[in-house]
């Protein structure tokens, strides 16, 4: 169900917690599984439940509670535009609209080529660098239309490299 690499990473995370607290590694295990598979399928959540020896419903509870988990497939690049107040005051709505126009999708949707999912999210804790968005592990800050276009081009280029 999960690669050796992912299992080894889960085991490394597991070592942080006391022997009788396997459940503590749940958030990490879900993250690692999602990094490998793109989203959390029912099958992988059930697998993690078995791995940790906890009821599947507890895995599902956590997976639906935390906003970073995707229970449905998403595009290769998930563009998470912060729309909370400091970003809002600095034009986050325009950022969202610009991306929406460029990609031809509304927030919450994925482009037909499966490359981008556009999302508006709540505060990402980079308020002084507003407006900003997160793609994967990276924050892109002080966004302008130009920097957004450059970002899209860069991400498209990366995807070409992969292909």
């Amino acid at each position: 169900m999960l690669s050796e690499k992912s299992l080894a990473e889960i085991a490394r995370e597991r070592a942080k917690y006391p022997a009788d607290q396997a459940r503590s590694v749940l958030l990490a295990a879900l993250r690692i599984a999602q990094e490998e598979q793109g989203y959390l399928s029912d099958a992988v959540m059930e697998y993690i439940a078995g791995l940790l020896g906890i009821p599947a419903i507890q895995v599902y509870e956590a997976a639906t509670f935390y906003s970073m988990y995707d229970l449905q497939p998403v595009g290769r690049h998930k563009l998470c535009v912060c729309g909370s107040v400091s970003c809002f005051l600095n034009g986050s709505d325009a950022v969202l609209q610009h991306l929406s126009e460029r990609l031809g999708v509304s927030p919450g949707e994925t482009t037909a080529d499966g490359l981008f999912t556009l999302q508006e999210v709540e505060c990402l804790g980079a308020c002084k660098d507003a407006p900003m968005l997160q793609v994967g592990d990276h924050y892109y800050e002080n966004l302008t239309q130009e920097s957004l276009d450059a970002l899209l081009a860069k991400l498209r280029g990366e995807s070409d490299d992969v292909r």
Binding site: S84, V85, S86, E122, C123, G125, A126, C127, D129
Partner: peptide
């Protein structure tokens, strides 16, 4: 777990 809108110091 810094996350209140407007807060970005711990980062």
């Amino acid at each position: 777990d810094e996350g209140e809108p407007g807060t970005c110091k711990d980062r």
